[in-house]
Nucleic acid binder design. Structure first.
Lengths: 213, 213
DNA sequence: TAGGATTTTTACGGCCCTGTAAAAAATTCC
DNA sequence: GGAATTTTTTACAGGGCCGTAAAAATCCTA
């Protein structure tokens, strides 16, 4: 394995363990077993290392989603596949995702930060389209702001970077099942709802505001 | 307004704008209009300031949820109220939440970090109980791991710290409505589902694994 | 308005991290 | 096995931020 790759691997581990902002180049060098300055032979800064870790992972994520959207699966299965595409990246072998998502603002170089931001914007945009298309086909409920739905789903998935522990937590498959059920059909049991007053299509109104309606 | 409070307010703003780890005590002092060292008269470190900002906000969040759980609302309304309790903290006037959630690992002092972690653990635990009780009452679907459901909802809400822009984004009420609908009833239109093959209670099986069943 | 308490500033020492450049070591290739 | 290339180390200069302690300024209050 080339030294360059080795550095990226070790760096990922250290970033994941200590957090990016509390990791110096020396920490990475120690993990590899070389002097700090040797790192500069391969990368020009810590931000550079970080980008090399995150960017491929992010673009692959986007491409995966793109393929799903372009498939001819029904909307509901696209939704499931899209969530899986995202969750699979938290696979024990891939720490990149946790590193990429746990913190923010770590790229001091604005042009690099912009590049990464662009990828994520595209990803969010694709998700929004997936929702919109489902609505247009009459599969998903109309009236829900697609962008916000996308934000919600992404939040659900991305937040895993804060609590998911590859060794200890539930297997990814199980999480996928739960998240998909939640988003697609909700956690309220329709059987129970049927026997009660009436299942409102819209949620109960806000209690604080809205004097009228 | 006491200088102490003033420092906390400005610090919150700067933290929110630049991110915690890229903010020095000097930055805060500049925002207040005093010399860096004067800060030490009121706080012993940056971590101290941070904790004073986050801890009250977090405990108030927990207490709000506690009150909702102890109320005698039906489970579904508890769920909505709990989401609202959380989302309301992203109110334009309160930047604490974004600061608290945007990054991680910022407390170098382990005892302080543990204190904060404890509060959040309690919060997650309460959420889990809310879900469990709903299941026990037959309102929520059985079989979904309550802890994971809680993680999902919290992720959805917490991730707002990454994209919600008080001035620009949709009003909180609207987001609440969408998020609640998603979690409670899902985004799949039941009307459409009725006319199709058959609405499966469980999500379609994973396509990769599971050779049997 | 003088004396005491509070608040802010000046002065200073120290640690850690960054990044460049040149020398040394290791390797690869005839 | 010796020269050329690649890789690693040594040497060094600089900057940023931290936190303490003592002095100065400001604010009360009697």
């Amino acid at each position: 394995m080339s030294r360059r790759i080795q550095i990226l691997r070790r760096a990922t581990e250290v970033f994941e363990r200590q957090g990016v902002n509390r990791t110096s180049i020396e920490d990475i060098a120690n993990a590899v077993g070389i002097k700090r300055e040797a790192i500069y032979y391969y990368f020009k800064s810590r931000a550079d290392i970080l980008l090399k870790i995150i960017l491929p992972q992010s673009t692959s994520l986007v491409m995966g989603l793109g393929a799903i959207i372009n498939s001819n699966l029904p909307a509901e299965q696209k939704l499931e596949a899209a969530i899986r595409n995202h969750l699979d990246r938290f696979n024990p072998n891939y720490l990149e995702m946790t590193v990429a998502l746990r913190e923010d603002h770590f790229l001091e170089d604005e042009s690099k930060a912009a590049e990464l931001r662009g990828v994520w914007n595209e990803y969010t945009h694709l998700w929004t389209r997936l929702i919109e298309e489902g609505q247009e086909h009459g599969i998903f409920k109309p009236g829900l702001d697609a962008r916000m739905v996308a934000n919600g789903i992404l939040g659900m998935c991305n937040w895993m970077s804060r609590w998911y522990d590859p060794g200890k937590s539930i297997p990814i498959d199980k999480i996928l099942e739960i998240f998909f059920t939640m988003v697609a059909h909700g956690i309220v049991d329709p059987a129970a709802a049927a026997s009660r007053p009436a299942a409102p299509k819209k949620p109960a109104r806000a209690r604080k505001a809205a004097p009228k309606d």
